[in-house]
């Protein structure tokens, strides 16, 4: 099992490198000259070139990429940083605070929001997905299906604003600004964030259940004399939930990303607002650091889900554990 985990981690490295390369390339080709922007308008070309040199921005692509990963130690100290692997990409153009410092500070807030949204999405999607599947073609099924369709079609940021309008402005049930210290204020943003996920998960649960219920082993279970409730609960559900768990896991990543849009609507102090503010102020290091950070977390979360999946489905586990014992193993089909 450990071997499987290690192998997957190894496979991840080139992907992570690829991601960093892409993000770095984007900044490299981005038009605009940070050095020129930092100096007063009447600065001479020489002054700009000097500044550029001390910022390390006149080196070749490869050299700058290496700096990006492992750090930059230039003349003087003001533009030095330790590189991505130490989570240090320098300072924000706007606030002059270390970019990763701000990110790491705000990250737990985003995690909180994400977790609440995840929790909500699970407790709603799974029961409704099951109900919808076991009552296929009834009005309940139709209602759930339509609700789920609307859920995947609603733009999150608009939903947030509509929820604020109804529940905050008109009904005064919730505040329109959210802070992590006030759990009640997190309700609306969580619902907004969870909407798309809940819809996707409900549909997934429903279709998975429908597929599983048609399987032969369900027929075997009935032929044993089990009552329908047990057949669904014990035999159908566990099999049906396997793909659902994967989807939920993958959705965690999507939640993180969705937070970017939702947080701004509620002015919630998480990475999303950092990113959006940085974009609006053209604070390149901050944007870069935020994007890389979210992308890396996303990749790691997906890896964790993959590994978890192997624990749940014995067939997947066997594929990887058994692969190590290939020759003469009991595992690969003993003959009748």
């Amino acid at each position: 099992m450990i071997k499987y985990i290690i192998r997957r981690l190894f496979q991840l490295i080139p992907v992570l490198l690829g991601v960093t390369l892409i993000v770095f390339t984007l900044t490299y080709i981005s038009p605009g000259d940070p050095a020129r922007l930092m100096l007063p308008q009447d600065a001479s070309d020489i002054q700009v070139a000097e500044l550029k040199h001390s910022m390390g921005l006149d080196r070749t692509f490869v050299v700058q990429y290496v700096h990006f990963l492992f750090g930059y130690d230039g003349p003087g100290d003001s533009f030095d940083y330790k590189g991505l692997w130490a989570l240090d990409l320098g300072r924000s153009y706007v606030s002059n605070r270390p970019v990763f410092g701000t990110i790491l500070e705000r990250f737990p807030n985003t995690v909180l929001l994400t977790m609440v949204a995840l929790f909500l999405s699970i407790i709603i999607s799974i029961p409704f997905g099951i109900i919808s599947a076991t009552r296929q073609y009834t009005k309940t099924d139709m209602a759930v299906t339509v609700a789920a369709l609307i859920g995947i079609s609603v733009p999150a940021f608009w939903l947030g604003m509509m929820l604020i309008w109804v529940f905050s402005v008109n009904l005064h049930w919730f505040p329109s600004l959210a802070t992590p210290s006030n759990l009640w204020s997190i309700v609306l943003p969580s619902i907004t964030l969870a909407a798309m996920n809940t819809a996707v998960q409900t549909r997934m649960t429903r279709s998975s259940m429908l597929e599983v219920v048609r399987m032969d082993y369900i027929r075997t279970a009935r032929a044993k004399g089990l009552d329908e409730g047990t057949v669904i609960r014990v035999h159908a559900l566990r099999n049906a939930l396997i793909p659902v768990v994967t989807v939920i896991g993958l959705q965690v990543g999507q939640l993180l990303v969705g937070a970017v849009l939702t947080e701004t609507v509620f002015s919630y102090p998480g990475i999303g607002t950092i990113m959006v503010d940085a974009i609006q102020r053209k604070d390149t290091p901050q944007i870069l650091a935020s994007v890389v950070f979210v992308a890396l977390v996303f990749a790691l979360v997906n890896l964790a889900v993959d590994i978890l999946y192997a624990f749940i489905d014995p067939r997947i586990k066997a594929q990887y554990v058994g692969a190590a014992k290939k020759k003469g193993g009991l595992f690969r089909g003993s003959k009748a």
Binding site: G18, V19, L26, S30, Q254, L256, V257, L261, V291
Partner: peptide, 24 residues
């Protein structure tokens, strides 16, 4: 396929955001 995997590793909206933020 490796290329596709790497592109897929970055969440869609985030990636699009980064591209547009970078290019204007």
């Amino acid at each position: 396929m490796r290329g596709a995997d790497i592109l897929l590793a970055i969440p869609n909206i985030l990636f699009a955001l980064a591209i547009v933020a970078a290019l204007g």
